[in-house]
Design a protein around this nucleic acid. Structure first.
Lengths: 342, 342
DNA sequence: GATTAGCACTCGAACAAACGGAGTGCTAAA
DNA sequence: TTTAGCACTCCGTTTGTTCGAGTGCTAATC
């Protein structure tokens, strides 16, 4: 059965109202701002309920939208929100001020998102694999240890502490750094593979074992690191009546702090321009009453990561989506500015 | 008026009991495991209340310890807790496994503390000022930008993105790195001051302006960074009845996430071997119902930072203190291992 | 004189009954 | 097809009521 125009209008009104109030919407209050009487609306509501778009917490309560309703709302009914000038200026300000490298920008992005939406924001650090090597520098720490710093066209990766043979000196580390940089410059990080090492002559091949383990550490190093997801505003959720129960809040916070899971979620979403995942569509246990809206970001045209907003299922999808779109633009501009001489 | 032995014993029993149960302690339940009758205990309790060691939530309730009582308890009455072998092995395990640099160790410390105590843990990254420069490396990023990586005898600092004159090339950055490293090797970071730059000849003095701004960026860079405090287990507090109210929880979480404040708190505490700060003795608004217990850690004999546990005022002080002591030992051993060749 | 048994009293937590209101479904009239 | 009207439902809140753990005080006991 198709939804006729009136049903759609009523459903939208219910969703809009519920997003604002978080409490079940009744026919009487709806009929105030509507051309239909409460009785008509009641009848339609009953239909919408049997069709699975509405649910009733208990017999004599109003209706609340089901996930199916949100899905329909997001896919077809939502009006595009328009950010006010103030808001987009505010948003722009976050990116204007803190431009000390990719990491800082993405941290700032998370902060901006959570502060402006009042929901929780997660930002995935760019996937290093698709980026091209600019510079590798090994820095001696102590005997047997060195710090490997990798610069790519997308900025700086986390640096990694690696083991080095005890007999390697500061100068040799320097020479190895230069050789590798020269050899792999502008290669994608994912292709910086140890298989090529033995082809190289001279010092590098003498240190083949070391260099191999070094390169594999660089490629995999990132996954070991827990800081690949920037989280902000987790406690914003405590504002919402959905989380007035401490246990629910705790479950949510625990979920959102599983950086591995968050990373997997965002990584998956980075292929898509935007995604909206509602309630039980989420894989995470703790997000069954949440929706996640994500957007991807690109560097040099390649999608390298994504960021998103997590809120209650009754989140203001229209507003969140336009904010994400805005941030997406700002972000690609700023990231591009790190690559001027490309 | 001095507290006689019986008053002390009763007070200690009340504190011990309240730490466990979080609910007011009555005379009857106390008299179960005591040589005195409930009436006697009642009389003593009345005295202790007028002396300010106990408080009564309402007329016909038991008594709860005041901050004054906790203070006395911590200073004089507390029995030293003894960690079980299992526990100290568990604790040791945290340090055994993750030794990829100072940062990682301190992150692991925070995690270990929060998981073992079930309270919230904060760890301050070491204060770089007192450490000695080992190595400085400037790595070209894009035209006009470079990454400065500083290695000290305590390990790696955060790296900083800096502006460089547009006409500086990769090789020149390298030479400048080497010059500065040579000149300031083994100087305390706080004394790496730009005043000395002009004394130097050659390339360095030609680039005097740049080098000056570089060095000041290095000394101050750390304070700009928000990651100087590692936080773990903030949501542990939601377990305790003190925080079953979402608003209280929110206030606490907001406070603990003020990394600047946490840093200031820990920095102040790093001069002391241990500190115990109870309830309103805390400066932070949000810690009026909390206690903070800290310990300092040293590198090469110099205290460079501190770490602590934040819990409700009725925290298990004895246990926390022995855990902190244990961690303090582990930590200095591990940090020392980064400085082998000293 | 110190301790304790006994007693009347207090107050909160927990449970139950009563009430009001917002909402519903259904029926019959417009 | 829409809507006014009505009986009904059920939640949230308020109002009692009871129960129990606790208290202070007094008088008896050690």
């Amino acid at each position: 059965m198709e939804l006729d125009s009136r049903k759609l209008q009523i459903l939208r009104a219910i969703v809009d109202e519920y997003i604002l109030s978080a409490s079940p919407v009744g026919s009487k209050s709806l009929s105030q701002n509507s051309k239909w009487s409460s009785a008509t609306i009641r009848n339609e509501m009953a239909d919408l309920e049997t069709l699975g778009y509405l649910a009733q917490p208990h017999t004599s309560a109003g209706r609340i939208p089901s996930e199916k309703a949100y899905r329909l709302y997001v896919d077809q009914m939502m009006q595009h929100a328009h950010l006010s000038d103030d808001e987009s200026k505010l948003l722009y300000g976050y990116f204007r001020e803190h431009v000390h490298g990719v990491d800082a920008v993405l941290r700032e992005t998370a902060k901006a998102l959570s502060e402006i939406t009042h929901y929780t924001a997660v930002v995935m650090m760019p996937d290093i694999g698709v980026n091209r090597l600019r510079h590798l520098q090994l820095i001696p720490l102590t005997t047997g240890k060195a710090l490997a710093v990798v610069v790519t066209d997308a900025g700086v990766s986390q640096n990694t502490v690696i083991d080095v043979p005890a007999d390697i000196g500061s100068e040799e580390l320097d020479r190895i750094s230069k050789s590798i940089t020269a050899r792999f410059q502008d290669c994608r990080m994912s292709t910086v593979s140890s298989s090529l090492v033995r082809e190289l002559g001279g010092e590098l091949s003498r240190r083949a074992d070391f260099v191999e383990s070094l390169l594999s550490a660089l490629c995999n190093g990132q996954t070991r690191d827990r800081r690949m997801v920037e989280l902000s505003g987790a406690t914003n959720m405590l504002e919402y009546p959905e989380y007035s129960d401490v246990n629910k809040a705790k479950t949510f916070l625990a979920t959102v702090e599983q950086k591995d899971d968050m990373y997997r979620m965002l990584k998956k979403a980075s292929n898509m321009e935007f995604t909206v995942t509602i309630g039980s569509e989420n894989e995470q246990e703790g997000f069954q009453d949440c929706s996640v809206v994500t957007a991807s970001y690109r560097v040099n045209g390649t999608p390298v990561g994504s960021f998103g907003v997590i809120g209650p299922t009754r989140m203001d999808y229209a507003r969140v989506l336009s904010i994400l779109k805005n941030v997406q633009n700002n972000l690609s501009t700023v990231l591009q500015s790190f690559l001027k001489e490309e």
